[in-house]
């Protein structure tokens, strides 16, 4: 729940991370999450069930067991539900539509209630604890290049993974959803078992990728040599041909 409180606005996360993060290291993360979780649980479950039956049950079944229209989410866990709802990938307007990132359909309280309900359905993963501000950029970069860059690209711009699937760009990925994605492995993405330190490091580097230094000017190179070549030809060469045309015009 730590991240749930602190995530938006981002500034609050930094404050909480600084104070609570230090405390969490002493008391132990398990205690913290369990303790914070119990407070809202009873109230949320009823609201969550109501929202679930209204918005999710037609595809995922009344107890998350799945239907021909949608997979079982019994073991999706809090992490899976939170990721899907917070990134707007769920709910889908129609079962046949592709999952794409959108503004979330529910507000913060509704998401928390739904997440609590889905988590109660089975033994899915909890929402991972992640504090980007305590992460180490250099270690995060190493983890990112070794595990994430193959699909999401070294610059985080995303790209195809074949078969019509696209690894999305990470420009909107916040630390919480990044951590959830690694735990859950949503869609075609594989799951990872990063420890808490690794998640902090990785989240820190993904944050860095949102605003890396661009000392060289406009960052068109985020899609690499394809954009560069396009510009070289359709800006560079075209301009230079025009310059040659002007230079070589018949003297008067």
């Amino acid at each position: 729940m730590l991240a749930a409180v602190g995530l938006r606005p981002y500034g609050a996360l930094v404050l909480i991370a600084a104070t609570v993060g230090a405390w969490a290291l002493i008391v132990g993360p398990a205690t913290l999450v369990a303790g914070a979780g119990q407070v809202n649980q009873v109230a949320s479950l009823d609201t969550g069930r109501a929202l679930y039956l209204q918005g999710c049950a037609s595809c995922h079944g009344s107890a998350g067991q799945g239907t021909p229209n949608g997979p079982s989410i019994v073991d999706a866990g809090a992490a899976g539900a939170d990721f899907e709802l917070r990134t707007g990938r769920m709910p889908l307007a129609a079962p046949s539509l592709p999952e794409v990132r959108q503004p979330p359909a529910y507000d913060e309280a509704q998401i928390e209630a739904l997440v609590a309900f889905v988590a109660s359905l089975g033994n899915g993963p909890a929402i991972p604890d992640v504090v980007a501000s305590v992460g180490d950029l250099a270690r995060g970069r190493q983890i990112y290049i070794a595990n994430c860059a193959a699909c999401h690209g070294a610059t985080g711009a995303g790209g195809t993974v074949g078969g019509g699937f696209v690894a999305p760009g990470l420009d909107l990925a916040d630390p919480r959803t990044v951590a959830e994605a690694t735990v859950v492995g949503p869609g075609p993405m594989p799951a990872f078992a990063f420890d808490r330190q690794q998640l902090d490091d990785l989240a820190a580097y993904v944050e860095e990728l949102h605003h890396p230094p661009h000392p060289g000017g406009l960052p068109v190179a985020e899609v690499g040599p394809v954009a560069e070549g396009f510009l070289a030809f359709f800006v560079g060469i075209v301009t230079l041909v025009a310059v040659a045309r002007w230079t070589g015009r018949a003297p008067r």
């Binding site: 860059a149 993974v161 690499g224 040599p225 070549g229």
Partner: peptide, 8 residues
Amino acid sequence: SSPAQPDW
């Protein structure tokens, strides 16, 4: 890193 391209 993907996409992997050479210069044009």
